[in-house]
Amino acid sequence: MFLVYNFLSGGNLETFIHQKSGVDKQWPIIYKIAIDIAQALTFLHYSCVPRIVHRDIKPSNILLDEELNAYLSDFGLARLLEVSETHATTDVAGTFGYVAPEYATTCRVSDKADVYSYGVVLLELMSGKKSLDPSFSEYGNGFTVVAWAKLLIKDGRFSEFFSPELWELGPQENLVAMLRLASSCTGETLSVRPSVKQVLEKLKQLHS
């Protein structure tokens, strides 16, 4: 069997986040990438039969073309869910820092585990930080971009979260709204975490 992929000359999102210049990291591009990934996940969770849970959403598994359109890749850990199934019980797979807490502790994976990982990716995309960034060492071992975002949101210190170029150019109101949305995606419990369809609807409201 052969798998055929388009050649995507933009590299992966991990390289974009951590190596690209500030010129590329402006709201229109950040917003488009966020939308592209949310649309891909919405397709997997709602249009595929059986539904597909990716289980390994992270920047290195998101590829970019020359126009910075984003594509999900690496479905090696994906699981199928029948329409009637709310979750699957399986060995924990994925990458530390992106795995949803309920999946890590109970081995029960659902489509909302992908939403959690997507939220982490958004936080990295906006801040320029890694999920387990060395700069978090002052907060103690295991401190992540998720905890950092929640801390800054709680204290109202929004400007400290974003890369300086992104915050300066704005629009700051939309950036804060996307930060809050990404943080909601990383809610500790399934009941408070939105579906990716809800995330996509809220993202579309931020278009300007």
Rank of each mutant, 00 (worst) to 15 (best):
S137M: 10
P194R: 05
C107T: 11
T95C: 06
E66R: 12
G11A: 06
Y46I: 01
D111A: 07
D111I: 10
Y118S: 07
S191V: 13
L206G: 04
S110V: 05
D155A: 02
D24C: 13
A93V: 13
D155G: 01
Y103K: 09
N141G: 12
N174Q: 15
S137P: 01
G22E: 13
A34C: 12
P59M: 06
K154W: 00
D56P: 03
F161G: 02
S195K: 10
V120Q: 11
V196S: 03
E165V: 13
S208M: 08
F162L: 09
I29V: 15
V199K: 00
G140P: 03
L175D: 06
M178K: 02
E165G: 08
G170V: 04
S21C: 08
E14F: 13
D24Q: 13
A93M: 13
Y116F: 15
P171N: 14
T95P: 04
H45R: 07
K150P: 00
V99L: 08
S127I: 04
L64K: 07
S184N: 13
V199A: 04
G76L: 06
L179Q: 00
L13F: 04
L181A: 09
A104S: 13
E168K: 11
P50W: 08
P101K: 12
D133W: 04
Y103S: 08
D133H: 04
L63G: 09
H87N: 11
L68A: 01
G128Q: 09
L64D: 11
L190A: 12
F75D: 01
L175S: 06
N6M: 09
A149S: 03
Y116P: 08
Q205Y: 06
A182G: 11
E188K: 14
P101G: 10
K204W: 02
H54E: 09
S117I: 00
E66C: 05
D133Q: 06
Y116R: 10
F7H: 15
A100C: 10
P59Q: 08
L181C: 10
T105W: 00
V99H: 05
D65E: 12
A147S: 14
F16S: 04
